[in-house]
Simulated scan of single mutants.
Amino acid sequence: MSDRVRKAIIPAAGLGTRFLPATKASPKEMLPIVDKPTIQFIVEEAKKSGIEDILIVTGKGKRAIEDHFDSVPELENNLKTKHKDNLLKLVEETTDINLYFIRQSHPRGLGDAVLMAKDFVGDEPFVVMLGDDLMEDKVPLTKQLMNSYEETHASTLAVMQVPHKEVSKYGVIKPQAKIKPDLFNVENFVEKPSPEEAPSDYAIIGRYLLTPEIFGVLEHQKPGKGNEVQLTDAINELNKTQRVFAHVFTGKRFDVGNKFGFLKTNIQYGLNHPEVRDELRTYIKQLGAELTEEDKTDKAAKKSK
């Protein structure tokens, strides 16, 4: 088995039902954060981490993802002719990537999507990057996992503490002793436990570094929660035969998998975007003043009653 981590899998076959009707004909992964599709942030994190080859697992109605990362000669020539060099650079950056695509014909779960990458990965460690989580840190989270692997040569998942009432949304770990301040041994993994059954508040947050032995487990993994093949269940099985670690992420995580999280992320990124940040700050202050005035009016109306 190779010790180099060169390949990444980005599962993008989900139906995006939480964003209907916007996702009826458009992939959820193409919803923009200000002016950039969410999936492009994931691809950029992979590149910054030193990943060389990326497999995107798509599904029906996801052709726009392939088109986004493809060359568009008519557009590029138009931008060249009009000397719009900055825009041309933005467009060309999306094609300077070793990307491969495979289609998951039926949504059988994250574990099944990862299993589809078996031939692509071969006998190498690899990373899985979920598109619902955007991560910010001085060192990209995927690179942090890769650095950890260089020391442990073992599968490692990114985790973060979440509010206890929200654990049922995640895979959750039962941690054992810390190896380092940011690295746990793990006793077991539980997919979406109830708050009463959760072994901790440490949730898996969408970045995995896995050894190729996971494929042997996935091939025999029975469907779990939601009647889908759960990657968390397979990792729990893998942990019985080889160590699996949990790396604690301390950077910023933006959850774009739900409407409110998506809106918050757009505001946060908008406040840092050079084209819109000043106008957005002014608008937010203006809106805050208007809401404060509305609250005062509501309170006054209640008192008068």
Score class of each variant (00 low, 15 high):
Ser2Glu: 11
Arg4Gly: 02
Gly14Asp: 14
Leu15Ser: 15
Gly16Phe: 05
Gly16Asp: 01
Pro21Leu: 04
Ala22Met: 13
Ser26Thr: 15
Ile33Gln: 03
Thr38Cys: 13
Ile39Asp: 02
Glu44Pro: 00
Glu45Arg: 04
Lys47Ile: 15
Glu52Ala: 13
Gly59Ile: 03
Lys60Tyr: 10
Lys60Trp: 00
Ile65Met: 12
Asp67Tyr: 02
His68Arg: 02
His68Phe: 15
Ser71Pro: 07
Leu88Gln: 07
Leu90Pro: 11
Glu93Thr: 06
Thr95Arg: 15
Tyr100Trp: 11
Ile102Lys: 13
Pro107Glu: 11
Leu110Ile: 11
Leu110Lys: 07
Ala113Lys: 14
Ala113Trp: 00
Leu115His: 07
Asp119Pro: 03
Val121Asp: 04
Pro125Glu: 13
Pro125Phe: 09
Met129Phe: 07
Gln144His: 05
Leu145Phe: 09
Asn147Phe: 05
Glu150Asp: 15
Leu157Gly: 00
Val159Leu: 06
Pro163Leu: 08
Lys169Arg: 15
Lys178Cys: 07
Pro181Ile: 03
Leu183Met: 05
Pro193Asn: 05
Ser194Ala: 14
Glu197Pro: 01
Pro199Thr: 08
Ile204Lys: 03
Gly206Glu: 00
Arg207Gly: 00
Pro212Gly: 13
Phe215Glu: 10
Gly216Ala: 07
Gly216Gln: 09
Val217Ile: 15
Val217Trp: 08
His220Gly: 03
Pro223Asp: 04
Lys225Ile: 12
Lys225Met: 05
Ala234Asn: 04
Leu238Ala: 00
Lys240Ile: 06
Thr241Tyr: 10
Arg243Ile: 01
Phe245Leu: 08
Val248Asp: 01
Val248Arg: 10
Phe254Glu: 09
Asp255Met: 04
Val256Tyr: 02
Asn258Thr: 09
Asn258Pro: 00
Lys259Ser: 13
Leu263Thr: 13
Lys264Tyr: 12
Asn266Thr: 09
Gln268Asp: 14
Gln268Arg: 11
Pro274Leu: 07
Glu279Leu: 14
Arg281Pro: 00
Thr292Ser: 15
Asp295Thr: 13
Lys299Thr: 07
Lys299Arg: 13
Lys299Gly: 04
